[in-house]
Every structure is written in structure tokens, then in C-alpha cells.
Amino acid sequence: MLSYLGRRILQLIPVFLGATLLLYAMVFLRPGDPIAALGGERGLPEATQEAIRAEYNLDKPFIVQYLLFLRGVVTLDFGVDFRGREITEVIANAFPVTMQLALMALVIEAVFGIGFGLIAGLRKGKFFDGTVMVLSLTLIAVPTFVLGFIMQIVVGVNLGWLPVTVGNNPDFVSLLMPAIVLAGTSFAYVLRLTRTSVAENSTADYVRTARARGLGRYQVTTRHVLRNSLIPVVTFIGADLGALMSGSIITEGIFNIHGVGGTLYDAITRGESVTVVAMTTVLVVVYIAANLLVDLLYAALDPRIRYA
């Protein structure tokens, strides 16, 4: 087990190098010229642009820029972005609130998705199953923007039950509504995955065996049906953490949260290569950590899966 962990951590290095190289290449190949855009519609004289490119090492060959970036990773100092702000500070500002939001959304999608999915799976074809089917369809078809906007107007502006925006006080209460909105689509996945797995497993032989052995309905459900149904669900949820963090741009916009999604998107459109790659690198680590955790969970959910 420990050696497995050790190997996985060692494997971080090639993944890190591969991901950053690929990302850096992409930002490098991105069309347009971010420096030319700094002057707005007025533009900047060519000589000035050259000076700025030199300042940010953008005149260097690709591989040199990449090596400079790696140096930044080692020293944890990526210099400043085109706005003159410390890139490490930009990243450090964006992650805490996003992390909080993503974890809240994760809990919501896990608790409600698994809960509803379990009931629906056990009562397949019944009324409750149909109801959650319609609910998940709605969440798939109605875009996050619309869902978020309507909730904001109804719950925030009209009823005043929850804060309208998050702004600069990201606490549990103000993040509750955005977390629900953010969890929406993933909730549909978790629900459908749980429902199907539960429906499948509830007819499995070992369940009947368990029932035949006289185990109670509750025990059969939690110990056997649910546990054996959770592998795809847990896999989804684990990988979803990273997606919730990087993909929350719409939710962040609606509720005015200054987090990773918006910062990353801005950096991409502005062509801030170092910010983009550095931020995404943090996301890579989150993905890997979450996936590793899930892999370890497999062994707990299904004792037959072993890591040596």
C-alpha cells in the first residue's frame, strides 16, 4: 500500500512535465498577440511592444520560455503578469474561495445524487423514479446560466432568503446558492449513475443471498447494494472535483465570485501564458490527488481490488 502510494507520487513528475509542456505549447500556439492588445484600440508603437516582449521573455524561443516557467515552479516565483501583479498572488487569491465552493457543491451532489439515486434505483419504474428522471432531464437541458439567474432573482432578490452575490465575503451562507447551482449538472450524473448501478445490483445474486440469509432490508441496501454500486459514482465524483474548480466560470460570474474559473478564463483570453499554465498546474495536482483518493477508496468499497 505504502509502496503503491510512493509510486503514485513519483508518477506526479512525468504527469506534471507532460501537462505543463502540453499546456505551454497550447498557449504558445494561441492565435493573436496579447502584447499588441495592451494598448487597447489605440495600439502601442512597435518599439514599445518589443520592449514589453523582452521584459516578459516572450521574444525567447518556446523551449527557453518553458524552462523559465519550470524555474518559476521550483522557486515558486513566476514574476508578474501583464497587469504588473504577482502571479503567485493572483493564484493564491483565486483558489481558496473556489476550493470552498467546489467542496460544497461536491457534498451537495454526492449527498442528494446518491440519496435520490438510491431510492430511484430501488423503486425503478415507480413514481419517484419518474420524478427524478424529469428533474435530471431539466438540469441537463436548462443551462447553468438560466438556473443560476432564476435562483438569484427568486431566492436572492425577491425573497431575500440568501445573499444575492458573494463578492468579498465568501462564507457558507453566501456560497450556498452558488454551490447548489454549480452542483446541478453533476447532480444529474451522480443521480443517474447511482440509480442504474443500484437497480442493477439490487437484482444481483449476492443480494438475494443476503436477503435469503435473513438480513434486513436496510442492511442489505447499505452493506451490499449501495457499496457495490458506488464505484462508478465515486469515480465520477472524484474526477468532478477538478472540473467543478476549473469549470465554474458561469456560476462565478452570476454570483460575482472571484475564483479560479473566471481568473483562468481571463488569463486565457488575455494570453497570460504563465498564469494559465501555473494555475492549471495546481488543478492538475488537485485532479491527481482526488483520483488517487478514489483509487484508494476502490479497495475499501470492493475488497477484491488490491494495490500492491
Binding site: 508518477q11 507532460g18 494561441r30 477538478g242 483562468l264 486565457i268 488543478l283 485532479y287
Partner: peptide, 20 residues
């Protein structure tokens, strides 16, 4: 690990590059 790498790439960035 290849999967991990692909997880990390933002869709918007990749789409900008590929579409261009």
C-alpha cells in the same frame, strides 16, 4: 497518467488553439 494530463487542459484554451 495520460488521462490525468488530459483532465487538466481547459476546454476553452484547447478549442481556441485547435479551431484557429
Amino acid at each position: 497518467r495520460v488521462t490525468d494530463i488530459f483532465f487538466a487542459i481547459p476546454l476553452v484554451l484547447a478549442a481556441i488553439v485547435i479551431m484557429s
